[in-house]
Amino acid sequence: MSHPGDELLAAYVDGALPEPERRTVAAHLDACPACRDEVALAARARGALRGLPEEPAPVGVTGPVLREVERAAGTRRARAVRWLAGAAVAAAVVALLALALPELGGGGAALPPADEVSAAQEAGLPAAAASPASPSLERSDRDYHPSDLEALAREASAGTERLAAAEAKTPPAVARAVGCVLRGSDLTPKDRIVRLIDARFQGTPAYLAVALRGPGAGQPPTKVVVWVVAKEGCGPLAYSQDAL
């Protein structure tokens, strides 16, 4: 028989060959001193390599990396948010949203189709009680900034009792927005998205999603997370969170 190929011998030395092939290779090795010698060398190398200990990473490997990350985060102005938003900012957001939000459907009623939503908005209809179903798509001309996210989360954490989820038929625009948010964030369908806003973030057209998160299935939420993803490409733009 011809000599087994390198691929076969690698798998043989690893003990990864299924039985019929293994027997064939073993039979060849019995008859071929050259291949037998090769396999012995390979097995010896493998054994020596597997015996190498894993060394601890020395101090100082990561320091410069983390400093660079810090600098980059500073210049990008996209940062992990500390919760210092003033009440005035929160109030401003509430007022602005009250203007921008049309009534999307009372109680558990089905949401109107997306084009009706935008038509209502173009007509400048003022919102009644802002009680967004979960999730409806709010549209806004506002250009959000990182500091606004604090207020968004804070507002949600202050008023979760009015954010009871309403089961509703999901219009395509909402489904698109949710899909985009799920793609660009670490939110999953299990997270309860309580607000979904179609606006801009630092000039970029974006979806802002406010979600409630619990420690586990069936447990009450313990924090609010805010994700901002670009409408174009659904890439993540900013992230923020607050405890409930």
Binding site: R79, A80, L237, A238, Y239
Partner: peptide, 9 residues
């Protein structure tokens, strides 16, 4: 994803 969103931690 969080890193991309600016969370350096």
């Amino acid at each position: 994803r969080r890193t991309l969103a600016g969370d350096r931690e």
